[in-house]
């Protein structure tokens, strides 16, 4: 199937000044590659600080000016440059942010969903209808529309963010840690919504550090480590002792889960060792 999003050999570094004039680059991502096809939930799993969110921001074009990108980003078969990104953001590419601090505390939730729909190019007179429809799809009653974000529970706020991201009916949805801080019930609920969206033909890039729960909805899993993608495996490869996984790091990650033996790796491996084991 044709890829919706194709990230190929993406590298990212930040320009920084040390002292007054000396400039040096801080590398953050190195040779990141993955694809998302319509109808799949593609989980990106890795430790905190591995660069998962940076990749999401790079795809959305939200990096600060001192970021230096190389490699290719294709969306729907065409290169995703700054100009095209500006036209597609919100309309074809949408983001569910990591933190509920992304909600404006001074604006009623319903109005924020309407703004989001308007920004995605929906005609102004249709936005109230769309907003109500989207909120009710995620089980949020009309009184949530009138509520300010600080009066909502964490789970409800997360669903408002989900409604904002899907109000524009984007083809690709990047969910950046959408389940952090949620209780098991709400977590499964959010993951199920993402699965539903994928079944409806959207491509979902699910960024998480929770491999176990990502596997319940994901079609494929890409493992991130220290700024690079180690391997992409179908989620049914995460089975047994992980014999079908190619990278030792991925296998160790799988075996470290409480349900799979709870085995700690012999010792912390350096990044170079992880790569040389391949």
């Amino acid at each position: 199937m044709k890829a919706l999003l194709a990230v190929d050999a993406l590298s990212l570094s930040f320009q920084r000044y040390s002292g007054w004039f000396r400039r040096h680059a801080v590398p953050c991502l190195n040779d990141v590659s993955l694809t998302v096809v319509p109808g799949e939930v593609h989980a990106v799993v890795g430790a905190s600080g591995a660069g998962k969110s940076l990749m999401a921001w790079a795809v959305m074009g939200l990096l600060p000016a001192n970021a230096h990108l190389s490699g290719t980003l294709n969306f729907d078969g065409l290169p995703l440059d700054a100009e095209r990104l500006a036209a597609l953001r919100g309309k074809c590419l949408a983001l569910i942010p990591q933190s509920i601090a992304a909600l404006d505390p001074l604006v009623r939730s319903g109005r924020q969903v309407r703004w989001s729909a308007r920004r995605a190019g929906i005609a102004a007179h249709r936005t109230p209808h769309i907003a109500r429809q989207t909120l009710s799809r995620y089980g949020l009653a009309t009184d949530v529309e009138q509520a300010y974000p600080h009066t909502l529970s964490g789970g409800m706020a997360r669903r408002v963010l989900l409604a904002m991201a899907t109000a524009g009916d984007a083809d690709l949805l990047i969910a950046d840690e959408p389940t952090t801080g949620l209780d098991p019930c709400n977590r499964q609920r959010v993951l199920d919504y993402l699965r539903e969206l994928a079944d409806a033909g959207k491509g979902i890039l699910l960024i998480t550090h929770d491999l176990q729960h990502a596997l319940t909805v994901a079609n494929r899993v890409t493992v991130f480590h220290a700024g690079t993608t180690l391997e992409t495996a179908p989620s049914d490869a995460f089975d047994g002792q992980g014999e079908r996984l190619t990278m030792p790091y991925t296998r160790a990650l799988w075996q470290a889960l409480p349900s799979n033996g709870f085995q700690a790796p012999a010792r912390e491996r350096t990044h170079e060792e992880v790569l040389s084991l391949a």
């Binding site: 959305m60 919100g90 601090a101 992304a102 909600l103 001074l106 703004w115 920004r119 991201a165």
Partner: peptide
């Protein structure tokens, strides 16, 4: 985060400045 997320929704800087910023 508010501005970053608004940007991700496709908002322009002016949109963010007057809708969120002014408030």
């Amino acid at each position: 985060d508010i501005a970053l997320y608004a940007l991700a929704q496709g908002a322009t800087r002016r949109d963010i400045a007057w809708r969120h910023g002014a408030r």
